[in-house]
Design a protein around this nucleic acid. Structure first.
Lengths: 146, 146
DNA sequence: TGACATACGATAATCATTATCGTAGGCTTG
DNA sequence: CAAGCCTACGATAATGATTATCGTATGTCA
């Protein structure tokens, strides 16, 4: 965590109206440094390496604050627990119903314009979540084996 | 439930390898007759009007069997509990983060062709889930009031 | 520095969902 | 159509994820 990063984090907190705390900063840094779509438990595990005494509740509370402030997003789940979207670039997801993996596909989606043109009056779009749901190559083989 | 519907249900069960039971049929009929995206609790409430002694666990088990068999889908949640997709037509969702409502928008999904061209080798697509996440007109007003 | 607001940690509580298990009912075969 | 097997049912305990509570500690601002 360079001084640059710290001052950037201070700016983020100021905009969101959040106090700057050590725990909050480490949670932020862990999220920003994590590829993929970590669950709160995974975030907790990583943060504990730097703050062993941190509480799981603190991790949950801060993840929610970040999501409410739009600093991170939430991945829509086709399974179990919540996941944090740490990828800020436009992309969509390949979701495997077998192994529950979520793979990012970079780049915009075709056909977005048409969708946006047809929105009902007054609906304010925050983001677009597109998931291609199916079965990955590995899981297709496993089903045959079973 | 006409005789036609019953024989249709028998066919569905046969294809899925499921026994034909009264409870299962009522759960199926309730799902097929429900607009929107009912939660298991909502399904339970409706089914109980016809089978007061049914167990919530039975409702959950059958919903899962239907989803596994592809008879119904699961809505990806941007909040709370699971929901069943009872709309068999291609459509996408408007999800309000305020009131948690899910509105169906018929037709006009992004071009599957372009997406499929970019898929990794071996991924078998089952369905496409497109959710436009935002705030509906009503909830935007309420926020101002608060 | 002092006062107040917010955050933290520990843990209890809640909520949705799943597992267990004994009984009942559907389904196939003789 | 009876016997036996397999699946399903109902009741309820257990689980797992998330949230609420509350007393203490820390950040913020005058």
């Amino acid at each position: 965590m360079t001084q640059q990063e710290t001052s950037q984090f201070r700016r983020i907190c100021e905009q969101a109206g959040l106090a700057v705390t050590h725990q909050r900063q480490v949670i932020y840094e862990v999220l920003a440094a994590t590829d993929g779509h970590p669950s709160p438990e995974e975030v907790y595990a990583r943060v504990r390496r730097r703050i062993p005494a941190i509480s799981l509740a603190t991790v949950y509370k801060n993840i929610h604050l970040f999501i409410e402030s739009g600093i991170f997003d939430q991945v829509s789940m086709h399974h179990g627990s919540m996941r944090v979207e740490t990828n800020r670039a436009p992309h969509y997801h390949l979701v495997c119903t077998g192994c529950k993996s979520i793979l990012d596909m970079e780049g915009g989606l075709p056909g977005l314009k048409e969708i946006e043109e047809r929105l009902p009056r007054g609906f304010r779009v925050e983001r677009l979540a597109v998931d291609v749901v199916g079965v990955c190559e590995g899981c297709q083989k496993q089903v045959v084996v079973q």
